[in-house]
């Protein structure tokens, strides 16, 4: 698998999640935090509505990367969450090769809302 610096690995729009998606993801991750499913709780915490789980963005990054390069090649993924995501907000998720060192390819990943707001950034490494 030959990769070059600047190569776009993927650039996709993940449709906004609905509340059932959030509830399923909470159940699937055994996450008891009501902030993802309880409107009143989320508002009391200072948010306009329930929050999409940060790990859902991590999961999108890993799943999309695995689909492109092979899950068994993934070595690391380091994600920083930068803004909350709310139900119905599409995310543009992109991965671009930043370097190749030996047999490891590194890439930068980004997640953005349709207005350009960054919601997460990440770096990852995978076997070439």
């Amino acid at each position: 698998m030959t990769k070059h610096q600047g190569e776009v690995i993927f650039d996709v729009v993940v449709p906004g999640s609905d509340r059932q998606h959030l509830a399923d993801f909470s159940e699937g991750t055994e996450d008891p935090n009501p902030i993802h499913v309880d409107e009143a709780f989320a508002q009391a915490a200072g948010f306009p509505t329930v929050l999409q789980q940060g790990p859902m963005t991590t999961a999108h990054f890993a799943r999309l990367l695995a689909a492109e390069v092979g899950q068994d090649r993934l070595r690391w993924l380091d994600v920083t969450f930068t803004a909350p995501v709310y139900p119905g907000e599409d995310l543009r998720i992109k991965a671009v090769v930043t370097g190749v060192e030996g047999d490891i390819v590194t890439c930068a990943l980004t997640a953005e809302k349709s207005d350009g707001t960054s919601t997460a950034r990440a770096e990852a490494g995978f076997e070439a």
Binding site: V14, A23, D24, S26, G28, P55, A59, L77
Partner: peptide, 20 residues
């Protein structure tokens, strides 16, 4: 894992344990 994938809006492909 199926809930985990459906929550992402992804196909519930259980051929492998999802990476995260």
């Amino acid at each position: 894992a199926e809930k985990f994938l459906r929550g992402q809006g992804a196909e519930a492909d259980l051929s492998t344990v999802p990476p995260t």
